[in-house]
Design a protein around this nucleic acid. Sequence first.
DNA 1: ATGGCTACGATCCGTAGA
Length: 254
Amino acid sequence: MKLATWNVNSLKVRLPHLLDWLAAAQPDVACLQELKLEDAKFPRTELEAAGYHAAHAGQKTYNGVAILARADISDVATGIPGFADEQKRVIAASVGDARVICVYCPNGQAVGSDKYAYKLRWFAALRDYLAAELSRHPRLALLGDFNVAPEDRDVHDPKAWEGQVHVSEPERAAWRALLELGLKDSFRLFDQPEKSYSWWDYRMMGFRRNAGLRIDQILLSAPLAARCTACTIDKAPRKLERPSDHTPVVCELA
DNA sequence: ATGGCTACGATCCGTAGA
């Protein structure tokens, strides 16, 4: 079973890239972030024609998440229970024997800003939600754009980024708190090329210079981590005309 | 040089992303 996550940065603009990529990569489950469209405008017909069921939580202009799956999707839940939030950042669903949770974690804008405080509150709420979900669903996969580069090796220029949003110690601690629930960063279960990133700035020829961050991740509970045989970053979609600034991350489960 | 792109919804610029 192949699981993927991709921040598409506008599903409307990226639909052709997404359809091409689904056909080429053939994931069984694909978690999408930053749909930037209302549910009424979700391209259900096109995705069904491509062989995917979908559960989605969208909003106009900002945020928006979806889970696509070849198999049936059940027990869909949106948001974080008990955490009131207008922003559509979380959707969970059961696919086969796994619980899949797709997240678009807050950006945080700048350390010390209101959005940064929201980001840390949001991560704390996510942690509590996951603790409860893990007790009900031992086979759990958490996929998404975490907007945190967990270690300096996930940052193209750690010195330039030191203390900045996405790498600050409170954000990294919030990210590590998810691992402390027993989740594994599937990418780090395997030897990986140095300077592996999942996002590159549109400006300054970020992709060509490989000036990126590894902020998109697939975290697996222990039973799923034990079945994981590979985790890779697929840079192909980032090379296309008018790409998303993120590229897909894919893991394979036996 | 503290910018530099892209998407969006509003107009012909501001907000947001990371």
